[in-house]
Amino acid sequence: MRFVVCGEALIDLMPEQAISPEESRWIARSGGGPMNSAVALAKLGEDTHYLGRLSTDAFGRQLTSHLEAAGVALDLAVTTDDATSLAVVSLDDEGKANYHFHFDNTSNFNWRRGEFPELESDDWLHFGSLAAIIGPGARNVLDFVSRTEAVASYDINVRPSTLPDRVAYFGLVADLMRAVGRNGGIVKASDEDIAWLVDDDENPLSYAQAWVEEYGLSMFIVTLGPDGVAAVRPGGVVVQVPGHKVEVVDTVGAGDTFMAGFLSAYASDPSDVEAALSRGAAAAAIVVTRRGAKPPTRAELDAFQG
């Protein structure tokens, strides 16, 4: 199967060292949820093609090199002179990442209709996060997802600071879930994503179940942090696996790497959802023990799972 991963590739500026009150040192890491998933899929040995807009500036060249080094094919990528998008990252005491974005007129958000390929029914399209929400290109992403023949998976990956209006944000997400449901696709969100979208942190699985039925999804996956992950299927079927106890360095790329591990396993055996969830949870457990989004290889993941 060919995985086509659509969405943003950007630079995460992460604090490294305070030199003086006037100066600090930062690291520019290659990031962006969809790009992280593409890299993770390729490192797991999957045929992975990145569908994104890559700048010709210095940061864009870094992102291009990062994708190529991981074995991600760039035949579907778009080259642009738009500046690379930036995310300034801060970490709390538990290593959880928070983001502040610099996106106006940057590469990821200026999609044009003619920049999307025609995918086949045996392709798998994975997309998500900010490029599917932020204009002016988000409408063209929705149009692409709405007409593609490929089965799709969508990682909601809410970033409230980019669109603080919950109602408007959920309206965009709902349109994308409806598009994914055309071909019986899959949607993934964290419990925190769902709590913010619906302004209710009581029972994320109940919302997942309602959306599976309303939008015709084959599955809605809810990541639950240290409590593992659950998949809700039509008819109220829930499959849940536990998380792993590991020493967390930071959570950058955890959800993105989970999706790669899950999709890699699910594509090879769609009948065993529990095994696919376990594969994804193990991949995420490895990446949070590392600084930045550094997903495991297939050999590392196999060794971790024993």
Rank of each mutant, 00 (worst) to 15 (best):
L142R: 09
S121P: 01
T106E: 05
A97K: 07
Y169C: 12
A150I: 00
R112E: 13
R113N: 11
A97H: 08
W124L: 06
N140L: 14
F170A: 13
I133S: 07
P136S: 04
I156T: 05
S107D: 14
G114V: 07
H100Y: 10
A152S: 15
P164H: 02
K96S: 13
R147I: 03
P160E: 03
S90H: 12
N108R: 03
N110R: 15
R166E: 07
T162R: 05
R159S: 06
N157P: 05
L125R: 04
D92P: 08
Y99P: 04
I133Y: 00
H126I: 01
R159W: 06
D93Q: 14
F127M: 12
D143R: 15
G135Y: 06
Y154S: 02
F127C: 13
G114A: 11
V151Q: 14
V145A: 14
A168R: 13
N157S: 02
R139A: 15
V89Y: 06
Y169I: 09
S153N: 05
V89M: 11
F144D: 06
P160V: 07
L142V: 03
S107G: 08
E115R: 07
G135N: 12
G137I: 11
V141P: 01
N140Y: 15
E120T: 12
G114T: 07
P117K: 07
N105W: 03
R112Q: 15
H102Q: 11
F103R: 15
K96R: 15
P136V: 06
W124I: 00
N105L: 09
A97I: 09
E120M: 11
A132S: 14
P136W: 09
V88A: 10
R166M: 05
S146V: 03
H126M: 02
F144T: 01
V167H: 09
E149F: 02
K96T: 13
F101G: 01
N110F: 07
Y154V: 00
V88W: 14
V145E: 04
S107N: 15
D123S: 05
